[in-house]
Amino acid sequence: MTPVSPTVLRCAGRTVARYTTRPELAADHAPRPYLHPVTTLAGLPVTETLPEDHPHHLGAGVAVPDVAGHNFWGGRTFVRGRGSVELDNHGVQRHENFKLCDPDGFVEELSWTAGGERLFREHRTVAATALTDSAWALDLTFSLANVSGRELSIGSPATNGRPGAAYGGFFWRAPKEATAPVVFGAEADGEAAVHGVAADWVALAGPDWTLVFAGATARTRRDPWFVRAAEYPGVGSSLAYDARLPVAAGETFVRRVVTVVADGRLDRAGAAALVRKAVAS
């Protein structure tokens, strides 16, 4: 099979991301489309894929560790009473087609399948918007419709018995550098202060770059943030923070996350101003 070239995303006349729709990955990586590399306007990479510490981390995208017992995250599965174990339970997010594909964004249809069963139909939109001459925004919305004909539920290692590990949903793996990135929110500083909090936004700042993640979903609950900095740099949403998320047969749920990608290190006021502009655009 001939590899499919990544889809290029452009902003302000510059290539800022590449989107791989059909990666050639082993089943235990839970193959799925992902954005990598994502860069600042100056060309500095701010995503990482297949890192040694977590080889199932794939740039920026959507990943869920537990959909009715199926692993759409990759790697081991956390099982209550057993811990993290290797299971043959990995699902696949399969790119079906683009409804729209422009230089600054696309609209995509995907299928989530596992064990020969189609569980979700996904409608994903991604758009790049210029904010300033040194910052742009990646706007990602995913809509998941339960097409299995039965109730499904989404879980996380936290809901399965591992405290603090409520990852699952939108996830962005940043590059690991010599020093851990600085973490802050609108009213808090440090990884421990923002992890697990349903804040408007959270920022991850390296020496020469800043990422600001804003939960921008309308008419639904705001998910807590999953934040890592000391162990590895990554930020995501928690669809199942302290309880499983039920999805009835035929039901659809939507999440939107807008990420500011900036050159340099932003302060709190600068991050807040760019988030307001990004979410409103």
Score class of each variant (00 low, 15 high):
120 F>E: 01
184 F>T: 05
273 A>T: 12
185 G>Y: 10
110 L>T: 15
278 A>L: 05
268 R>I: 02
277 K>D: 14
172 W>M: 04
63 A>H: 02
24 E>N: 13
264 G>A: 05
42 A>H: 05
277 K>Q: 15
209 W>S: 14
152 L>Q: 14
258 V>I: 15
221 R>L: 05
91 G>N: 05
281 S>Y: 00
242 D>H: 12
45 P>F: 08
232 Y>W: 14
114 A>W: 09
82 R>C: 07
52 E>S: 15
247 V>R: 07
113 T>K: 04
259 T>F: 00
201 W>T: 03
108 E>N: 13
218 A>P: 01
104 D>T: 14
56 H>T: 14
2 T>E: 07
266 L>G: 05
165 A>T: 06
62 V>W: 15
124 R>P: 01
204 L>K: 02
230 A>N: 04
50 L>N: 10
165 A>F: 06
116 G>N: 08
191 E>R: 02
279 V>L: 11
134 S>Y: 07
265 R>D: 04
229 A>W: 08
250 G>K: 12
244 R>W: 01
245 L>D: 06
144 L>F: 11
193 A>N: 11
209 W>C: 04
198 A>Y: 08
178 A>N: 11
245 L>C: 02
155 G>F: 10
46 V>N: 04
237 S>C: 05
242 D>C: 04
19 Y>V: 12
107 V>Y: 13
91 G>P: 07
219 R>T: 05
89 N>H: 06
261 V>S: 07
227 V>I: 14
69 G>Y: 02
265 R>E: 12
208 D>W: 01
235 V>N: 13
117 E>N: 03
30 A>Q: 06
135 A>R: 06
20 T>G: 08
178 A>R: 15
133 D>V: 04
278 A>Y: 02
208 D>Y: 01
169 G>Q: 10
17 A>K: 08
67 V>S: 08
99 K>Q: 11
229 A>V: 11
246 P>H: 11
211 L>G: 09
66 D>Q: 03
127 A>W: 10
66 D>C: 12
12 A>G: 13
71 N>S: 04
3 P>C: 01
85 V>L: 10
95 H>Y: 14
66 D>M: 09
